Amino acid sequence: MKRKEVSEIKKTFNPTNCCISRICSCYVDSEKNKRTELKEAFLSLPEEETFKYFNIFKSALSGSIGKNMVNMKFPLFTEEEGGTQNFLLKLRDSQLKDDALIEAFYDKVIGSYDYGENYYIILIHCAYDIPAKSLDGLEMYDASDFVFEFIQCTICPVKLSKAGLCYNSELNTIENRCRDWLVEAPDTGFVFPAFTNRNTDIHGLLYYTKNPEQIPERLIDELLGCKIPMSAKNQKETFQLIVKETLGENCNFEIVKKIHDSINEMLEETKDESVPFTLDKYQMKKLLEKNGASQENLKDFDQRFQESQVDEFPVFMASNVANTNSFEIKTSDVSIKVAPDKSYLVRKQFVNGQSCIVIEASGHVEINGIAVI
């Protein structure tokens, strides 16, 4: 799924465009016991509750594609009878009206989700009447040929509110506040099937994680059956390792700075595109060659790329391997950060026989808030 497709589904989570037909949920305590369950038509809930649920569903479609939202594909064997994809397809097709399937789903989550505290599993069934688009890209809501029928699962931590004082308006007093168990924003979840090219793709799903570095591997493996992709952190570390090993002794300040600048330039050029900018093996090789890697450096690049096991994950998300917030230089004693588009202000040169990092300091200069000359 692309950014525009995610946004399109996200827009259905409001009262005007609501396509949610049914909601089922289960509150699980820290001992993995089912404490309470909900099964009913979504629009039969009180209006105040539906707004809070909308916020939860939108939260599980937020963040960056490739970090918080990851497109996953099902291995073929999972689509056979008894496979994980086959089970999810049956769950969707039941429109969440088959109690046995719902209970089996809860049991699968509880059995594979390693979380030592209370949490709330929410399942919704949706039927989105996909509006056609005119030649100029405008949506025509009165013209639709397809319906995207999907389920979304969100898993939310449930935590006790903090102790404190509150104002009692009835008694006009300040008193101890009652502590409640609060449903927080989701930690993880998924949309199945995927909404690819604005249509149903039963061979994939969109997975969400609040923390990209804490992916529940067992849940993905046992509940979804999808191959776990390389995390954003691992992508960055693998990319950096390939650059260092390829350049070898030529891994100098200027070449690395040029690589950083080139990636950020490409990200800026593609920022309005719906598909995130990625680097495959060929593009990465061209990037290194363009910015100073010699043919001698690159002669073992293909083998090095394969040895890093990147062949299982054939592309890097450019936003995962580049620092789009700052250009950072570190020594053993000093850390320097500048805006990514101002890297030209920093250079490395010899001063009085010493290798130094030199920063152009024209205009206003402050030290701890004090303007200096």
Rank of each mutant, 00 (worst) to 15 (best):
N352M: 14
T188I: 14
K330S: 09
A132T: 14
T154M: 06
P46G: 04
N14K: 13
L76Y: 10
L298G: 03
K52Y: 01
V315Y: 11
E31Y: 13
F51R: 14
N234S: 06
I151R: 02
I65Y: 06
I215K: 09
D221A: 12
E249W: 00
V315G: 00
E366A: 11
S326D: 12
L182W: 06
C24T: 09
I329H: 06
I220A: 03
I102A: 03
S7G: 07
K258F: 02
E265N: 14
W181S: 14
E80Y: 08
L182A: 10
T200I: 11
P15H: 11
A339R: 13
N71I: 06
E222C: 08
E40N: 08
T196V: 08
V321A: 05
V243N: 01
V28N: 04
S59F: 02
E213K: 08
R218G: 00
L288Y: 05
Y120C: 00
T16A: 11
A163E: 15
Y167H: 11
N320M: 03
K285E: 12
K330Y: 06
D280A: 08
F87C: 04
G83K: 06
E222L: 10
S59E: 09
E254P: 01
Q152R: 11
K159Q: 15
K73G: 12
L223R: 08
V351C: 15
S326Q: 14
D201C: 09
V243Y: 03
Q354S: 13
N264M: 08
Q306A: 15
D341C: 12
V275D: 12
Q95W: 03
Q303F: 12
G204R: 08
D300F: 11
Y141P: 02
D142I: 02
I259Y: 01
L182F: 04
T173G: 00
F105G: 01
K97N: 12
E170H: 08
Q95N: 11
A104R: 14
A185F: 05
N352S: 15
P193I: 07
P314C: 09
S169A: 13
E360A: 15
L288C: 07
N291W: 01
I336P: 01
Y141S: 06
S326T: 05
A60N: 01
L160K: 15
Y53R: 05
I370L: 14
A41V: 03
K244Y: 01
I336D: 06
K10Q: 14
D333R: 15
E8K: 14
C166Q: 13
T50Y: 02
Q303P: 00
F77W: 09
Q214F: 04
M1G: 04
S274T: 12
N168E: 11
A339M: 12
K2N: 13
G204A: 15
E245L: 11
E366Q: 14
S231G: 04
N352L: 13
I65D: 05
N197T: 03
N291P: 00
L61M: 13
Q283Y: 10
T36S: 12
D99I: 09
R218P: 00
F301R: 06
L165R: 07
T270W: 01
P314G: 03
L165G: 08
F148W: 07
E268W: 05
K299H: 08
M284D: 06
Q283P: 00
I359H: 08
N320H: 02
C153R: 01
L123Y: 07
